[in-house]
Design a protein around this nucleic acid. Sequence first.
DNA 1: CTGTTAGCGCCTTCAA
DNA 2: TTGAAGGCGCTAACAG
Lengths: 339, 339
Amino acid sequence: MNGKVARPTISDVAKAAKTGKTSVSRYLNGEQNLLSDDLRIRIETAIADLDYRPSQMARGLKRGRTRLIGLIIADITNPYSVDVLSGIEAACREKGFTPLVCNTNNEVDQELHYLDLLRSYQVEGIVVNAVGMREEGLNRLQQSALPMVLIDRKIPDFACDVVGLDNIQAATTATVHLIEQGFEAILFLSEPLGMVNTRRERLRAFRNTIDRYPGIVAENAEIPLHETELMDNTLRQFHTRFRGMRKAVISANGALTLQVARAMRRIGLHWGSDIGLLGFDELEWAELAGVGITTLKQPTWQIGYAALEQVVKRIEGAAESVHEQVFSGELIVRGSTAR
Amino acid sequence: MNGKVARPTISDVAKAAKTGKTSVSRYLNGEQNLLSDDLRIRIETAIADLDYRPSQMARGLKRGRTRLIGLIIADITNPYSVDVLSGIEAACREKGFTPLVCNTNNEVDQELHYLDLLRSYQVEGIVVNAVGMREEGLNRLQQSALPMVLIDRKIPDFACDVVGLDNIQAATTATVHLIEQGFEAILFLSEPLGMVNTRRERLRAFRNTIDRYPGIVAENAEIPLHETELMDNTLRQFHTRFRGMRKAVISANGALTLQVARAMRRIGLHWGSDIGLLGFDELEWAELAGVGITTLKQPTWQIGYAALEQVVKRIEGAAESVHEQVFSGELIVRGSTAR
DNA sequence: CTGTTAGCGCCTTCAA
DNA sequence: TTGAAGGCGCTAACAG
């Protein structure tokens, strides 16, 4: 009466429906029109009776199609990633794939580990929001020749489909906005640029834009996320150095904006009055923080969705050359950049 | 030169190492001590040369052990869920399991869909943060007799291991804090109670605590997350009805706290001065919102970790009766509940 | 329209 | 210490 009841197999269904496995298999694979009504109904009821579900393991083994897609997410704690994930998931559901989510916690080691894992589960494609992934990771990846698309960020020296924000447009929009609001000295804050193309592109667009407006001062600084002292000092100095001018800070991503806001709190700088503040990435709490923080919102969900669409295209054999897809950001103006 | 290179199989390795598949299999399964040094080395290099990875699909099929654990998350957009997830992941890594993350988006349909999916991938256990899941879902679950543990919230009429917050302790701590801070009328705000045990337990503990302090007024209201008007009115009324008394609001979870804060903004109520505010769940922006918001922080990561440990125990055959594990919350005091 | 058969890649007796 | 053979649950020829 107790003990593990073995899962019913296709043979059990065949037996119960008094037919062969092939017909059941056909039924399962949508070739139902090839079956007589009678047989179809028998199979239907047998499946229902036994509460049968085909084993994806066996299917995957046989067909080589696992319908699995690997997701490598740099930091699942980041709202950006989560929103993207959400878009990917929706797309997966629509296309009949199942996402295998791997959180690398911003550690390159984990990235390698998960890459292996995904291969061993024979995922049909991968969507990656990479942290580091150089050499080793790249080699493994290229060997496996798996359909893959990058999100947000490119990997240096690696030609691959990418989906992300139109960094030029976004950074330009943000910068112009600040200038129009009358800010005269602007500090672009980012995490260390490294080889991260998004950071570099945003910074470059920022500088290019400022160059078009003589008299406006452009500065930039690279600050690791948790270097609070460096952050405090940088802001303090920027503030005193341009005393008498209208100043503003652009923060290159959401996680950093949080740190900037905290730092301003600590050193008693009020955004909106003492200093302007504009951050990339929308934050659910942006309107609640003081007079509100102006943000540049990315269409995160769409980015995720598009990324998955792109892998699926590749899985289905699209052979076009490397495909880059960018989405425009949207400026959401709040008190922190008011005149 | 191009075209898909077929993944190497165990046979390829065997061939390359000039031996049989059995030995390779033994090598892979840690029975390396049974192999001669010579053979072991040959296999080792063959594996490295071919960059071979055993197919989990085939393994799963053969042994019935997929090393897959299904995670059903009600809303991946919720920071609570993400933190828990993060703990689960860490534990998975340690125990050698792979999480299959399913986001149900708070939809019962999705829950059923994913339950099927997980079964079809033959996951060995499930960790669930359920939304609804009644009848249908339950039946399917009970039939499958899969090791399972619930997170945060129980499912009515379903005996199952649970890991979550000590709601009584937490709600009591929160309530006592407010009373000690001199608040005389306290409104407990939650989403509709429904059959959600966490909401009910928190509310009950709140009322029980207040009962011990004569003269303190306790109220409560149920407000769906996005009913902004209802929220506004409820707060407004509460505020005017107890004019002249020191009032505070407790919000039963993080998502709701965000809505409460927004509503207070809208109707011009300032937490910390006009009214007290305390929310369950820590928020990364809690210190940035006005004078700061006092929160009751859950050890989310630990909860996730513990949940996974528990499923693994079950997978490995623990037959103890239903196991409930609760963690204490920690009050983080900020400006919103100052005297 | 329907059934038989031969593997997919791996592990596990069983025999050498 | 090693290898050969069978089968996990399923699909895809190939016959009827």
